[in-house]
Amino acid sequence: MAAAAAAGGNSGGGKTYSFKVVLLGEGCVGKTSLVLRYCENKFNDKHITTLQASFLTKKLNITGKRVNLAIWDTAGQERFHALGPIYYRDSNGAILVYDITDEDSFQKVKNWVKELRKMLGNEICLCIVGNKIDLDKDRHVSVEEAESYAESVGAKHYHTSAKLNKGIEELFLDLCKRMMETAQAEERMKGNGSSQAASSRRGVQIVDDEPQATPAGGCCSSG
């Protein structure tokens, strides 16, 4: 959430950003492989040390600024689709993964984009990721279609292969930079003319924002 950036926003020079990124996409598109490749640099490896691959963190240093990235995996099965809002609320970024050999998974991504834009507006940085480019010969989603769609919804498009370790570093680095820009722009906006107290309370204000407060409060009764 954006508040995290504020919570880490020390008065000292070394600023630390904390970002929450959700991984969305159908089951079997390789969400887990993607994130395991990024955080552990391993693929389908028997020597993976982590007990789980559903919550992973990564510390980065981008142009002298510290960034703590928390990557939240989500259950991709169709029957858990309705639970999405509980996962992605307060997130700074979303990575929407589809399988380039599976047309359906791309349709799911489109649904997610619509939902995210409706619920979170433009606050959230979207990345659309076509995974498994090592299987390019079985491609069912055309590059042009995917890229033009991404552009039309204000998202960035990436091609990756967790197996070959292609495009993953770039994806996360780009996303971090964009999230930092968003956070900085937000800070500038809030910082203009308002007191110290107001800016430090910014995070809480965002959390208690009306449209978000409703799903937050009733997350377990209605969501």
Partner: peptide, 23 residues
């Protein structure tokens, strides 16, 4: 304390519990 609930690992598991109950 929101700083713990929103970003940390604990927060992730808590969110999953909320999801489980909602489901």
């Amino acid at each position: 304390n929101p700083s713990r609930l929103m970003t940390g690992e604990d927060g992730y598991y808590f969110t999953n519990l909320c999801c489980a109950v909602a489901f």
